[in-house]
Design a protein around this nucleic acid. Structure first.
Length: 159
DNA sequence: AATGCCTTCAACCGCTTCACC
DNA sequence: AGGTGAAGCGGTTGAAGGCAT
């Protein structure tokens, strides 16, 4: 037996939220505030699980969200905070008013990672890429990958 | 105009943490 | 102290739109 599901999946909607669902959720939270997410969907008349409602509210519907493009200052702040905190997106989001952890995580993976790589920085360690390669004494081969190169494959072939 | 590839981001999944009993 | 349920979190997925061919 695995863990019990967070909700009765047979009776819940999945996928993109409709405008009507959004309106119901907003209206309910405006009237009652953020309370017990598990019981919220039923109380609000939504065929969604509590988790889904919470995520939708936090990442998209909250009135204090900024949304829209990140500024250069925000970029730099995210990079600095990531260097200090690592992938603690909720902590990073806490330092950026109006931004959510999900938004920052997505932005990191789509924009900032690339930005750092373009600067020759490793997005995980925030150190210069060539320094890391040197420290690990790596020799990077540009030859196309061959399945036989995989140690696991080699070992399997040997057995 | 049609097709395929790439990028973006909303949403889901599963694990961890926390609070309560 | 241990069990249980709810909330929170981070990783991953997949649909949609944009762009190149």
């Amino acid at each position: 037996m695995g863990r019990s599901p967070c909700c009765e999946k047979a009776h819940t909607n999945k996928g993109a939220w409709t405008k009507e669902e959004d309106q119901r959720l907003i209206a309910y939270i405006k009237a009652h505030g953020e309370g017990c997410w598990r019981s919220l969907p039923k109380a609000a008349g939504l065929l969604r699980c509590g988790k889904s409602c919470r995520l939708r509210w936090i990442n998209y519907l909250r009135p204090d969200l900024k949304r829209g493009n990140f500024t250069e200052e925000e970029d730099e702040l995210i990079i600095k905070l990531h260097e200090l905190l690592g992938n603690k997106w909720s902590l990073i989001a806490g330092r950026l008013p109006g931004r959510t952890d999900n938004e920052i995580k997505n932005y990191w993976n789509t924009h900032i990672k690339r930005k750092l790589l373009a600067r020759g920085m490793d997005p995980h360690t925030h150190r210069p890429l060539n320094a890391i390669a040197g420290a690990l004494n790596l020799s990077i081969s540009l030859a196309p990958y061959q399945p036989g190169d995989d140690p696991a494959v080699k070992q399997e072939a040997a057995t």
